[in-house]
C-alpha cells in the first residue's frame, strides 16, 4: 500500500486524529507524561503485533492497527499510571487481538479488552485524559469534529447515532426515575468518555457490523447494556461491557451469515448431483 493510499484509509484517519488529541491534551495539561505514556503503549503494542505477525508468517507487516490500539490505551489510562502497567495493558490488548479471533478478525475491540482486563487485574485508574476528560467542556467540539470525520470515513453513522440516542435517553430516564448517577454521566469526564468511545472504539470496522441494520442493533445492545451496568454499578467498565455484548452480537451475526452462505452455495451443487 502506498502512502497516498494509506492516508485515505480509515486507520490513517483514526491514527492521525487520536495523535492530534494526544498532543492537544498534553499541551493543555502542561505535561509531557501523556506523550511518554503514548510512546510506551504504542511501542509495546507494535512490538507484540510484529512478533505475532512473524509467528503467523504474514507477508504484510503493517502495525498501524497496533499503533491505534496503543494510543487509545494511553489516552484512556490515567497520566499517573506506572509504565509497566501501561505496557502490560497494551500487551494484553494485542494478545486478545491475535488470540480471540474468528476468521482471522478479532472478536472483541482490542483496546477495550485490554483496558477491561487492566481494571480487573491492576485496578487501573482510567481518566480518559486524551478525550479531554480533565479539561474544560469547550474541548468537546474537538472530539466531535474528529469523531464525525472518522465515523464518516468508516460509514458508521447509524451505529453511533443509535448508541448516543439510546444512551442519552436511558440516562434521562434514570434521572426521571431517580435511579443511578445521571448527573455525572452527562458531564465531563463521562460525556467525553462516551463521545470518544462511540466515535473511535464502537466504530472499529473488524469488530462491528457494516450493514445499517446490524449497526443499529449493535448500537442498541452496546447502549442498553452499558447504561444498565452504569445505572446499577457505576464505575468505569460499563462502556466496555456494552461494547463486548455488541462484539458478541457481531460474531454471532458473522457466523450465522457465513453458515447461510455456505449452505446456499452447497445446495445448488447437491441439487445438481441428485437431479
Amino acid at each position: 500500500m502506498k502512502w497516498k493510499q494509506w492516508f485515505k484509509s480509515p486507520k490513517a484517519y483514526v491514527l492521525i486524529t487520536i495523535s492530534v488529541y494526544l498532543f492537544i491534551a498534553s499541551w493543555a495539561t502542561h505535561s509531557i507524561r501523556g506523550i511518554e505514556n503514548g510512546g510506551i503503549a504504542v511501542g509495546t503494542a507494535i512490538v507484540i503485533d510484529v512478533l505475532f505477525a512473524l509467528i503467523k508468517k504474514r507477508k504484510r507487516i503493517m502495525p498501524d492497527g497496533a499503533a491505534i490500539t496503543g494510543l487509545i490505551v494511553a489516552l484512556i489510562l490515567s497520566l499517573n499510571t506506572a509504565w509497566p502497567i501501561i505496557a502490560s495493558t497494551a500487551c494484553l490488548s494485542i494478545i486478545s487481538k491475535h488470540l480471540l479471533v474468528y476468521k482471522k478478525k478479532p472478536i472483541f475491540n482490542p483496546a477495550a479488552f485490554g483496558l477491561f482486563l487492566s481494571i480487573l487485574i491492576y485496578h487501573t485508574e482510567q481518566s480518559w485524559w486524551g478525550a479531554f476528560g480533565d479539561l474544560p467542556s469547550w474541548y468537546i467540539p474537538l472530539l466531535l469534529i474528529g469523531g464525525y470525520a472518522v465515523t464518516n470515513r468508516v460509514n458508521k453513522y447509524q451505529q453511533i447515532f443509535t448508541f448516543f440516542m439510546i444512551t442519552f435517553a436511558m440516562v434521562l430516564a434514570m434521572e426521571l426515575l431517580h435511579s443511578g448517577d445521571a448527573f455525572d454521566a452527562l458531564r465531563p469526564p463521562f460525556i467525553n468518555a462516551t463521545l470518544f468511545f462511540g466515535c473511535f472504539m464502537l466504530t472499529d470496522p473488524p469488530t462491528s457490523p457494516a450493514k445499517p441494520t446490524g449497526q443499529i442493533i449493535f448500537g442498541i445492545l452496546a447502549a442498553v447494556v452499558g447504561t444498565i451496568v452504569y445505572g446499577i454499578y457505576g464505575g468505569l467498565m460499563y462502556l466496555f461491557i456494552g461494547l463486548f455484548v455488541g462484539n458478541l452480537y457481531h460474531l454471532l451475526q458473522t457466523r450465522f451469515s457465513s453458515k447461510v452462505t455456505t449452505k446456499s452455495r452447497k445446495e445448488p451443487r447437491q441439487r445438481g448431483m441428485t437431479d
Binding site: F164, M165, F168, A169, E175, A182, F183
Partner: peptide, 22 residues
C-alpha cells in the same frame, strides 16, 4: 446526519437540564 445529530443533542440537552435542575 444533521437531523440525527440534532435529535441526539436534544435528548442530551433534556437530560443535562433535568440533572442540572435536580
Amino acid at each position: 446526519v444533521a437531523l440525527c445529530s440534532t435529535a441526539v443533542a436534544a435528548v442530551y440537552a433534556a437530560g443535562y437540564w433535568s440533572t442540572e435542575v435536580d
